[in-house]
Every structure is written in C-alpha cells, then in structure tokens.
C-alpha cells in the first residue's frame, strides 16, 4: 500500500495561472478521477506528474519518495497516456504488444480480450480511432507501474469500448494509483474511487453530479 500526494502544485503560463497551490492525495488500489473545464489545468497537471512539463512550485510524493519533476519520468514508476495518439502507425498490433509486454503471460492475458485478439495482425494505421485508443489504454494500463496517468482515455471512442476501458481500469487498479481525466464526467463518476474537480487552480472533492452543479462544471439541467 502506498500513496500519491500532490503538495502546493503551481503553474502559470505567462500571466495565466493554471494551477494555484493544488493539493490532494490518493492511495494505491484506487482510481482518481480529475474533472475540470477545458484549460482548467488537468492535462497540465498530468504532464507535470509525468515530468514532461516543469511546475513553478510544488511537490509530488509517490510511495514516500519525492518524484523528480525536472525530467520525463521514463523510469519504471509511471506510465502516461497522452491526449494524442502515440503508437507508431506502421507496426502491427502484435508488435506493439510484444514491445510493451515482453512477458508471455501478460501477452496471453491481453490476447484473451476478444477485441485485441481480433485486431492482432492488423497494422495500427488500419485501426479506427476508437480501436487505437482502446489498444493504447490496454497497453498502458497493463504496464507494471505504480502511477498510471490517463489523459482523456474515453475521447472519441464508441460506447462499447468505453465499457471495455472501464473494465480494463478496474481489473488493473490493484497496487497502482490510476489518475484519469476526461470530459465524460458520467464515466469518471461511475469508475473513480475518488473524484476531484479542478477549478481556478484548486482541487475540490466531488461526490456526485450535484457537486458538479454546485461548482459550475455542469448546468443544473444535466442533473439526472
């Protein structure tokens, strides 16, 4: 059991303050859902956590060790799904699986998924965006990492793959902190064990849709 703690995180682009002393924590075995309007700093925070962007101030503590945020954390502690597609387009799905998961038992597990098995021989380029995104999520989430950062995993994917992504996250959350951010707030509300809304650079704990209305993230008319 370990914990991810974000302490006093601050970031500004010139005069625009994006993160303003943001703080929260999350224990392993949990999915942390981050919500917020476009430009609220969700992706900025993800990039900072991964080390792809430098914060102006703040600390990230993972498993009682301070994370070096001055360089990309390409080590064995974190995995990151960026917003844009990152898989090389001219390789096959099977090649991507072998590169990401050399362990044969993990490969077998992945191929038990009929969606993955069906596209195994196809090139990444030939897949629809939804399938590509699904494959990316599956590859990243199954990596043996303490912290998994997923930036918009549900983006533009079809409903049946959304359910499959949810299943994959739940199956893989043990011994990890999975941080997920997306505009599909209903998916976030249903899957995340802890939900946070970023507004004006600060973190607010969310329990349900009514809280999202309270903080002005969704209009009252969207309440079920």
């Amino acid at each position: 059991m370990f914990e991810l703690s974000i302490v006093g995180m601050a970031k500004a682009y010139k005069s625009q303050v994006v993160l303003n002393g943001l703080e929260f924590s999350c224990s392993s075995g949990n999915i942390l859902g981050l919500m917020g309007r476009s430009g609220s700093g969700k992706s900025t925070l993800m990039k900072i956590l991964f080390g792809a962007l430098e914060a102006d101030a703040g600390e990230v503590i993972l498993d009682s060790k301070q994370v070096n945020m001055s360089r990309v954390n390409s080590g064995k502690r974190m995995a990151y799904l960026p917003q844009s597609s990152f898989l090389p387009k001219d390789i096959s799905v099977w090649s991507a699986i072998k590169m990401y998961h050399p362990d044969r038992s993990v490969q077998s597990n992945l191929l038990r998924d009929p969606r993955v098995m069906e596209i195994k021989e196809r090139s990444i380029r030939s897949l629809s965006y939804g399938l590509q995104r699904y494959l990316e999520v599956v590859l990243v989430v199954n990596l043996d990492r303490q912290l998994v950062l997923l930036d918009e995993p549900f983006s533009l994917i079809e409903p049946q793959y959304r359910d499959a992504v949810n299943d994959s996250l739940i199956r893989n959350k043990e011994n990890k902190v999975i941080v997920i951010t997306d505009h599909y707030y209903l998916d976030i509300l249903s899957i995340a064990d802890k939900k946070i809304l970023i507004k004006e650079g600060k973190a607010f704990t969310i329990e349900n849709e009514a809280d999202l209305v309270k903080y002005g993230y969704i209009p009252k008319s969207k309440l079920n």
Partner: peptide, 18 residues
C-alpha cells in the same frame, strides 16, 4: 512528423536523450 511517439518510448523507460 512523429514527436507524439516519444511517449511510446517514455513508457518503456527510454528517455529522449537515451
């Protein structure tokens, strides 16, 4: 042309300088 693919390698522990 392919800068987004650096993330593919970062996740494997391969940094850009490496």
């Amino acid at each position: 042309f392919q800068k987004d693919q650096y993330y593919f390698y970062y996740n494997l522990g391969l940094s850009k300088p490496k």
